[in-house]
């Protein structure tokens, strides 16, 4: 199973580079850091059906860090929600893949996001709806580590614990970098584990690039009752492309065609991370 998922993560990373070089803008760093998490979710964890994106009993996924749209679009396309060719029309006038996810335009997108902090709040609302209706679907929400400076994240965290939303799983893509620099330099959010625990969540920690560990931790989260769960995934921003890894400058800049060529060669050649 893990090798299939790893291959898919590698394809998703290649898709991200191909999309961004075409679009000439977008966010590679935070998309690449989440590729393994998304591959695990879309090719193992999520109960979804590409033929029925509006299936009422499906698991939901909310990309609270909406600027990582390329990783979501790549996962959805690879999973069969829409043709892969669409990926190359990202951010172009008249095409449906918006710069940030639009639930009304893209099959498989469960919430429109992009304004940070709002995704987790809506995801918690979906989880509450599941509880009201006594449905067994689960809601997964990917957050950025810079994003959690938003006050709304903590409003949502408090309410999700208050309403015992154990059908809600957050994943914190902890790559340590945000637009203006390192998290601890821009606005320190440590200690992460203690914060989420203090807000009434179960906290699990995982290597966000180890698919086997990720599978285990999602499995474990399913059995934790009475509280929402936050998975703090340690990741590397730009993971898989040597010159993008841990480089602040690759937050919101698209690669040039030459840079993309090198990136794709690395990803296809399996030089890093067995890709």
């Amino acid at each position: 199973m893990t090798t299939v998922i790893e291959k898919m993560a590698c394809k998703i990373r290649q898709d991200i580079i191909e999309m961004l070089v075409q679009a000439k803008s977008g966010h590679p760093g935070g998309s690449l850091s989440a590729a393994d998490i998304m591959a695990v979710l879309y090719f193992s964890v999520l109960r979804i059906d590409p033929a029925r994106p509006d299936w009422p009993d499906r698991d939901r996924f909310v990309l609270s860090k909406g600027h990582a749209a390329p990783v979501l679009y790549a996962a959805l396309a690879e999973r069969g929600f829409f043709p892969r060719e669409e990926l190359l029309k990202l951010r172009q006038t008249g095409h449906f893949l918006q710069g940030h996810p639009d639930m009304k335009k893209v099959p498989g997108v469960d919430m429109s996001t992009g304004s940070l902090g709002q995704g987790i709040s809506a995801a918690a609302g979906m989880a509450l709806a599941g509880k009201i209706d006594q449905k067994d679907y689960r809601v997964y929400c990917l957050l950025g580590d810079g994003e959690i400076a938003e006050g709304l994240v903590w409003e949502a965290a408090m309410a999700a614990a208050h309403y015992k939303l154990d059908n809600l799983v957050g994943i914190l893509d902890h790559n340590g970098l945000q637009i203006d620099g390192r998290n601890e330099d821009v606005l320190n959010s440590a200690p992460l584990k203690a914060k989420w625990e203090a807000f009434g969540w179960n906290v699990l920690e995982v290597d966000g690039h180890n698919t086997e560990e990720l599978l285990n931790v999602f499995d474990l989260a399913k059995n934790l009752k009475g509280k929402p769960t936050m998975i703090i995934a340690e990741t590397v921003k730009g993971k898989g492309v040597s010159f993008m890894e841990n480089a602040v400058g690759w937050h919101g800049v698209a690669p040039s065609p030459e840079e993309a060529e090198i990136a794709l060669a690395e990803l296809k050649g399996g030089e890093i991370n067995g890709c």
Binding site: G125, E155, M158
Partner: peptide, 20 residues
């Protein structure tokens, strides 16, 4: 939702997205 108006609207959006 307590004294948290942003979350009042965010939760409402999620509830509506799930059919409420």
């Amino acid at each position: 939702m307590g004294i948290a108006e942003q979350n009042l609207i965010g939760f409402s959006a999620g509830l509506a997205a799930a059919g409420k």
